[in-house]
Write a protein that binds this DNA or RNA. Structure first.
Lengths: 181, 181
DNA sequence: CTTGGAACATGATAGCTGTCAGGTCCATGT
DNA sequence: ACATGGACCTGACAGCTATCATGTTCCAAG
């Protein structure tokens, strides 16, 4: 049973944000937890020099700022980078459920542990030097096989390279797939 | 109260591993959860082509393979890359505590949420293109200021560059710190 | 004080990738 | 049939970084 299913009894409200709209701002009181249904929202922190630092890119089916459940106020801004819909569940309801329902607490911890595992893997892949190594690592994890058409730009973004570089690497393997290196 | 403190009542046993020793292997039954006290242990998965994929690098004060608490068997190997000491707490004790003690469950979830936040940030930093951008991001998070001497090689590794590249970037800023770019 | 080792630092070079600039293919709507 | 947009693909080139090489500085142990 997924987290989304477990949260449904909490009668979440659906919310909609236009591109560029803020889901919340730093300092705001944390009243709800957002689950992204469609679109993309970024957790960002503004730097002194005017630049921004992205802390999380939440796509569809992702939970936004899990740590906010334990904090009274937000520590950073959240912006929709494309038109985005979310399910908002009351923070108080989540906290109550965590304290009262061991089954939910376990599901929550399981979600966090899996997300952590996936993110650690992504960080390790991103610390590899060449596109070839990153693609190898990606394939080792995602059941060997090149990424299917239609998903390659997303994969390129996931492993931190330009689409062009990924296309070239795939082409290199297509013509002579024996020497990966 | 930290996770380490909360786990102490569980009478953990101290374990010691020589460089290269396995803490556990894929398929082993999960009997304990390791907290790294000193040294460094890697969670690794072996690839078909003989290469290895690192899933987590656990240094001192880090918890190893949090997701293993929810799994009966390990899904990957764990190797000490330098002489390493750990505290091992029984998996069953942790699970019982999670189910019985809401306070511990919350501390556990808090730990996972913070670790997740830190790892997401690292992944975002690693997806930046230049050393200058990565250092800016690192500084924005670690209370503006260049990394102190003695820690620079570690920082270089953290942000995924060679020590030389970091030294050069720091030198570039030292002589004329106004234009970060 | 000397010595050894590690971090710090910097020059030179080769290699890889980001970017720009083109182009093809294909599904969709008209 | 036609137009449109997006993914896919490739060539060319500038730019950045990893690596190697070669010191220098710092510090702790003897």
């Amino acid at each position: 049973m997924s987290l989304f299913d477990q949260l449904h009894p909490l009668t979440p409200s659906e919310r909609e944000f236009t591109s560029g709209a803020h889901l919340f701002r730093r300092g705001d009181e944390v009243s709800v937890l957002h689950l992204v249904v469609a679109g993309e929202a970024h957790l960002v922190r503004h730097r002194a020099d005017g630049g921004t630092l992205v802390l999380q890119r939440a796509l569809a089916d992702m939970v936004l700022a899990e740590a906010s459940v334990f904090s009274k106020h937000y520590h950073c801004d959240c912006v929709a980078v494309v038109p985005t819909r979310t399910l908002a569940v009351a923070r108080s309801a989540v906290r109550t459920l965590l304290a009262v329902d061991p089954g939910f607490a376990e599901a929550w911890a399981l979600h966090l542990a899996h997300e952590l595992q996936a993110t650690r893997l992504r960080a390790e892949i991103l610390s590899l030097r060449t596109v070839a190594e990153r693609l190898d690592a990606w394939m080792a994890w995602n059941g060997d096989g090149v990424p299917p058409r239609g998903t390659r730009r997303a994969v390129a973004s996931e492993i931190g390279t330009s689409p062009e570089a990924l296309y070239r690497e795939l082409a290199r393997r297509g013509e002579a797939q024996s020497p990966t290196r």
